[in-house]
Structures are given as C-alpha cells and as structure tokens.
Amino acid sequence: MQYPAPIQELVDQLSRLPGVGPKTAQRLAFFLLNLPPGEAERLATAITTARRTIRYCSVCFNFTDVDPCALCRSGQRDDHVILVVEQPKDVVAMEKTREYRGRYHVLHGAISPMDGIGPEDLKVRELLKRLADQAVNEVILATSSSLEGEATALYLSRLLKPTGIQVTRIARGIPMGGDLDYTDEVTLLKALEGRREL
C-alpha cells in the first residue's frame, strides 16, 4: 500500500536518521501523527531553531549558540592546556568528569584515507593557528582508540613536535572497578605498556 504523499515524505526523511530503518521510521511517523498538534510543532520548531542558531565556535569548533562558546569565554579555565577530541560529544563526556579545567579543540572527525578524509578536512589548521596565537604548555590528544583515532593522534604529535609544546596522549587500560580476568588481552597489553611507577 502507498501512503499519502505527506506521510511518505515524513517516513522517508525519518529513515535517513542514523540507526533508523524503514520499520522504525514508519512507527515514528505514526507516533508523530497521533500527537496533539502543538507537540508535533514543538519538535519541528526545536529542529529548525537548533539548525538555525547552532554553529561552530570560532575558537574551539564545538557546537554553540553564542560565539565564542561558553567554555571558551569562561574565565575559570586554564588557557595553557588544550584537549583535542574528534567530536562535540567527546567534550560533553570529558566535562562530566568535572575535573578537567583546560580548554578544548574539536577536530570533527579523524584521518581516514578510505573515506577521503585528510588533515585538511579536519580543524587542524585552526588548531595550529590557536597554538601560534596564544601561549599553550600542553596539548592532550584524546582522539578515540580506533585505528583512525590513533593515526590522527600520531599525525598531530609529529606535526606539533617542532613547536616544542608538550604533547600527551590519554592512557588506555582497565576500566575502574574492572576485574583483570574480564579484561580483553589487547586492553591488558595497553594497560601494561602505560604502567606507572608508584
């Protein structure tokens, strides 16, 4: 059976979302159609408002509605440390610790030649400019532990070597409260490599 065109369009648009297949898109569409009109409109407004007002922060390239973003404007943060991540969601994860007091830089991806993504497609040039413009003592590379995240970290560490700025990589290893015998071998090996003197 063919849906009326507006419903079909809604299903098609929803099924383009990540993790949403045709079945789920259909279910979501009917859920939306059964909502009181005001609620469905609130969702539509939320989407358009977010799209219209959110842009990249001109300093750290995190998503923001004011430029520079709240984290970059805050007077409580340490300007001398920059933590480099792949995605805006990584900033949120790091902020949850409530311990990190430095600044951020969001690359928006990782180097992946297979997907045609090179350093010029990431916010690398912008990072270099920041480092040239202000006094930074340490750059912490917190890209993911995927192959591409590791390659990006290696790339940046070599790129930054001539600047003389201290470059560090976050440690990988056993999760807190985790048992050794439940940890996979690769993680154990990395944890062993990153051991510290007590």
Binding site: G118, P119, L147, A151, L154, Y155, R158
Partner: peptide, 10 residues
C-alpha cells in the same frame, strides 16, 4: 607523506 606515515607505526 605525513598522512601515510601516521599509519606506519600502527
């Protein structure tokens, strides 16, 4: 070359 090189150690 720097991109090629960053996959070398891995």
């Amino acid at each position: 070359h720097s991109v090629v090189e960053s996959f070398g150690p891995l």
